[in-house]
Design a protein around this nucleic acid. Sequence first.
DNA 1: TTGAATACCTACCAATCTACTAGGGATTAT
DNA 2: ATAATCCCTAGTAGATTGGTAGGTATTCAA
Lengths: 156, 156
Amino acid sequence: MKLSSRSEYGLRAMVELAQSYGSGPLALADIARAQGLSEGYLEQIIAPLRRAGLVLATRGVKGGYTLAASPKSITAGQIMRALEGPLDLIECASEYGSESSCKRELACGSRRLWLKLRDSIVDVLDSTTLADLCTGDSTPGDKKEKPRHVGVLAGQ
Amino acid sequence: MKLSSRSEYGLRAMVELAQSYGSGPLALADIARAQGLSEGYLEQIIAPLRRAGLVLATRGVKGGYTLAASPKSITAGQIMRALEGPLDLIECASEYGSESSCKRELACGSRRLWLKLRDSIVDVLDSTTLADLCTGDSTPGDKKEKPRHVGVLAGQ
DNA sequence: TTGAATACCTACCAATCTACTAGGGATTAT
DNA sequence: ATAATCCCTAGTAGATTGGTAGGTATTCAA
């Protein structure tokens, strides 16, 4: 159930970039310093984000990275897919069909849970933008939050 | 983003037990055979479920495992917590407070996402029972299935 | 034109985790 | 007593994680 640090660091880097959006490129070293991350490792993490077209790089002396679009139009889902591949907790419940596996039982009881879980995760990730993670309040633009029995969850 | 096979196998075993609920103990070897799992490995997986009080074991000749309660009253959340520990994707967004970490920033932007995600996951897991995974239809009490692009999932 | 600052790439590595296997001990119905 | 079962611990090959190291390419500025 643990997320790899790739996602954690990658998202933190993107939030950092979102916060300085509009102020020109931010050097890798600056991001790493600001977030307390290893520069070399962060470099490997930001590469897939660039390849996915989420950040732009400019080389040379005043170079660095910038968001490829406004923080409002980049979702956590895009970032996670770039870093982790298709969103799925399990082979047979991937967002994009995995024909191969699950020959065993398509009507497999437990698969139902993984599908529900995946949908729920995809829903959260795709409805959260970088802007949502930067503003002071914690509510995204459209509030389609269903009033579930949240609130029992101790701790802010 | 991948779940360990512990959870997958553990849940499958529990579904198997749920399906034979009321028919006496089911031997480990039978569960393993029915689900196509390694017996030795499954043994290690079912142990924490027993320690968590979710299944009961009876030794001896006609022994085996039974659910400790009705499938309706055992949730996926209980099973996952027994197998994976506290539900969290990341240290600083655990369900039970982790004071230690995250000295960096409690108002950390990215943390907001992990909390939302965790809440969403906890919500799904705690609202799904074993009975939900055994019945013919795929709807638990409330039906909130969004019509996503499922159906692409090519059947075997 | 040179130099420095940056991004970009590949290979390597130690430690940990995963998914088992092996083998024996404890308990119980027959 | 015996066989069937659960129970426990240790080992292990391979993959993954979280990096480090070292070099190349590109750009700006003097």
